[in-house]
């Protein structure tokens, strides 16, 4: 026998489309995930809370944007902040919730435990990608609906562009989250690394300095960062007066194409 040394369990990388129990695994993981109040709060509630807090508490966010082109000159100031909040929802799930989950699965030996069963451990990661997408749909959906209903934000000018950018933001940021989780030995180290990327990302996506007043040099940098490109692309789609955000779409696609294979390749199963 001339088996080659591998650092992954022999079962890893051997997927034969075995899906027995996948639905059950998804349902159980979702149920167990919902029992973690911190994860649920940050994934689902935090973006909307921030949006409503700012929208209701800060007068400037309630006054119409008189300098904007019609019809946006009648929309409240918080409107320009909504795309940033949606980007924040994507960033929060990908950089705070997800890497910690995956690293914890490895730390606790859950991935190894699964590799002893007919269910490949890759499917647990797959299941949690699905759960995080569901969480994102809820999180972004609630933020958008509250913005429209509670804060009087007008509906997006070009919803298709918004959705396209949202999908690409998700693939780019989830790939980044996967890469963060790929080699972190513990949940805490994944959390630390995630935060290190999360906070600068928030800055360039306009959480602290809104995109509308962000200096050009910051926007220029932000264009090349996944979460910055996400916020800019979402803004372009929502207002619809800057044309199609081609550069942002290309940047997000590029990040996905680079980060996802890297995350998969570097992911340690043990």
């Amino acid at each position: 026998m001339t088996a080659v040394e591998q650092t992954v369990p022999a079962v890893a990388g051997r997927s034969r489309g075995r899906t027995r129990g996948f639905g059950k695994l998804l349902a159980t993981e979702l149920k167990v995930w919902l029992r973690d109040p911190t994860a649920v709060f940050f994934a689902l509630v935090f973006p909307t809370m921030l949006l409503l807090g700012l929208g209701l508490a800060i007068p400037a966010f309630q006054e119409p944007m008189v300098d904007a082109e019609p019809p946006w000159n009648e929309a409240p100031g918080i409107t320009s902040y909504l795309p940033t909040i949606v980007a924040l929802a994507v960033g929060t799930i990908s950089l705070t919730t997800m890497p910690v989950q995956f690293a914890t699965f490895r730390e606790k030996g859950i991935l190894k435990r699964l590799s002893t069963t007919p269910m490949p451990p890759q499917n647990l990661i797959g299941v949690h990608m699905v759960i995080n997408v569901l969480a994102l749909i809820v999180s972004a959906g609630v933020a958008v609906v509250s913005a429209i209903v509670v804060l009087g934000v007008p509906f997006a000018a070009d919803m298709l562009v918004v959705l396209l950018v949202l999908v690409l933001s998700t693939t780019a940021m989830f790939s980044l989250g996967l890469l963060v989780a790929a080699r972190a030995e513990k949940g805490t180290s994944a959390s630390g690394l995630g935060m290190l990327i999360y906070f600068p990302s928030l800055m360039f996506s306009g959480v602290w300095v809104p995109l509308s007043i962000m200096p050009d040099w910051m926007k220029d940098i932000g264009l090349y960062l996944p979460l910055g490109a996400s916020a800019q692309g979402l803004t372009a789609g929502w207002f619809g007066n800057e044309g199609f955000p081609l550069a942002q779409v290309l940047v997000l696609t590029g990040w996905t194409l680079v980060l996802f294979p890297l995350g998969v390749k570097l992911f340690r199963w043990e």
């Binding site: 027995r20 129990g21 695994l25 159980t28 149920k31 069963t117 007919p118 269910m119």
Partner: peptide, 10 residues
């Protein structure tokens, strides 16, 4: 839950 979900793999 653990028993049920592991059982579903076999």
């Amino acid at each position: 839950e653990a028993l049920d979900v592991f059982g579903s793999f076999y």
